[in-house]
Design a protein around this nucleic acid. Structure first.
Lengths: 301, 301
DNA sequence: GCCAGTCATAGCATTTCCTGATGAGTCTCT
DNA sequence: AGAGACTCATCAGGAAATGCTATGACTGGC
């Protein structure tokens, strides 16, 4: 026979109640079952834990000492298990999340607020990064969950579309094109354009869409930060081709936004995770909240 | 399913070896058995501990965290159990022993030396006390084992004769009675006698023995300490009637010892313990050494 | 001396656990 | 590309453990 938790629990309870019968009742066991547990424990330890008499049991000195140690260990164990269960119940835990800045500034705060309401003890460590960095962080294990885009299927990552982001034309106040409801790459190609810098996913998207229309994208201005691009447009220096989800756009009341109804002007914002790696319950909870949140995002047009 | 140590051990080993198969081998289990243990553990916790693939398993983040806690707890448990087993094997432990001073000064050191040789880690806390105190200490739980005498059977104590102590006549150098091989109460009654103080077990024994012979014991001197009594005898002030086991006698080369061959001049030195209370393994070891040691004690006469 | 209370024992049923065989998926080497 | 090695999952049957009910043995109090 080897040691078992049953034995330890039986022993601890017997010590606590001072009686085999009462201990058995408290553990929802029959008294003989408990007696056997104690006896086998004594046998495995080679030590008498209780002195029995017809009037009851009395703990041995060794029994008293051991009971203390065992009780402490059981308590620690129970605490660890309780902690694990709490994590499993999504009531706690920490998620490392890598997000595109545009999403971090718009959809994410709403989702985090909801998550907090549902699972207050879940911590989310948000790391904003461009699409490529999001993928890298996931693969490197620096993030458990990611929100970004992918150039194509990635064998290491799972992807699931959260929502679609579209590039929209951003017009300065009073611009001539403002009378149109929609704009096309062909129309835009004639204007001085404000875009993000080469290499950014938004820029790549725009270039591909123009190429499909047989056009070459030749921006007048290139900005690294969205706020810069918006400022350039507002100053009337050109027409912006920028993602609709960017917070800076939605906060700029004087600018006119016009959709560019070309499929390739849309990009899929993906919920990313490592393939072959299960999500922690906390991450699972976050993912669920994200899925439920994005459908509520405002439309642009 | 409830938590079991098997599961924890399986989990800890799987985490340590990084493989279910290797963990199973190390635990002398089949791989399926280990797989099941891990799975049921995951079910009871509600938590995925490993991500499986056909290439092997990789611990989850939660798994890594939990493994640390569990490993620590298992180690503590093993340590406690090892300590208990060591006690059971009599390799360690502490015995509280109450002893008559005469025994403490003579037989006991020999026994303790032997015990140390056999079980170096057993500690013996020696408390010397007169016969009545020895009994009291046992009953009060202040001592686990006692060496003393009893006026009669005691319902609370078990007694076992270790050896018999006899009162001997102690003659100063050149005393007239020294030519006799043996002495009797009748002869001694005519001498000025040196005894221990009234109430001591030695004194009571002597009084009873004299009474049986129809004599009244009327000592010339009464000493509390054996060393005093011996000094009085050596100074020629009288004939001592003292226990043969007293170390002071055996260390006093000039004194002549003569047996008093009367049965009632003997007292049983008893090994005492609480009835209804089992001895700790360490105490058991001490008891055995005591039994084996006393038969070797020197004879007087 | 009987009754109440406590633990131990025995026989039987149930649950748990393990093993051995087998299957499925992946990687490596040829 | 295919064979072989490796890993984990699943399944079926049997062994071990655990538990329960019934009963016994012993003690202390009324």
């Amino acid at each position: 026979m080897s040691l078992s938790l049953r034995q330890l629990r039986a022993f601890a309870m017997a010590m606590e109640t001072g009686s085999f019968g009462r201990a058995a009742a408290r553990l929802h066991l029959s008294q003989p079952a408990l007696t056997v547990q104690i006896r086998t424990l004594e046998e495995t330890l080679g030590l008498t834990l209780f002195d029995r008499s017809a009037r009851g049991v009395r703990p041995t000195e060794a029994g008293r000492t051991l009971a203390q140690s065992f009780a402490r260990i059981l308590e620690e164990l129970d605490q660890v298990v309780a902690g694990a269960r709490e994590q499993a119940a999504r009531r706690s835990g920490t998620v490392h999340l890598a997000v595109l800045p545009s999403v971090a500034a718009t959809v994410l705060p709403v989702a985090l607020a909801r998550l907090r309401q549902a699972h207050p003890a879940i911590r989310v460590l948000v790391r904003d990064a461009v699409a490529r960095r999001v993928s890298e962080m996931l693969k490197a294990g620096e993030a458990e969950l990611g929100i970004g885009t992918l150039p194509g299927p990635d064998p290491e990552l799972t992807a699931e579309t959260l929502f679609e982001d579209e590039l929209v034309a951003v017009l300065p106040p009073g611009h001539a094109l403002a009378r149109r409801k929609k704009l096309t790459p062909a129309i835009l190609a004639a204007e001085p354009l404000v875009l993000t810098e080469p290499g950014s996913s938004v820029r790549q998207l725009a270039e591909r869409a123009f190429a499909e229309a047989g056009l070459v994208l030749r921006p007048a201005y290139e900005a690294t930060y969205m706020s810069t691009a918006v400022a350039l447009v507002r100053a009337g220096l050109g027409v912006g081709v920028l993602p609709a989800t960017a917070l800076d756009l939605q906060l700029a009341p004087l600018l006119e936004l016009r959709p560019i109804p070309v499929p390739s002007m849309r990009r899929h914002i993906l919920l990313l995770a490592r393939r072959n790696s299960s999500l922690s319950p906390a991450a699972e909870a976050l993912a669920e909240v994200l899925r439920a949140t994005v459908v509520v995002m405002p439309k642009v047009g």
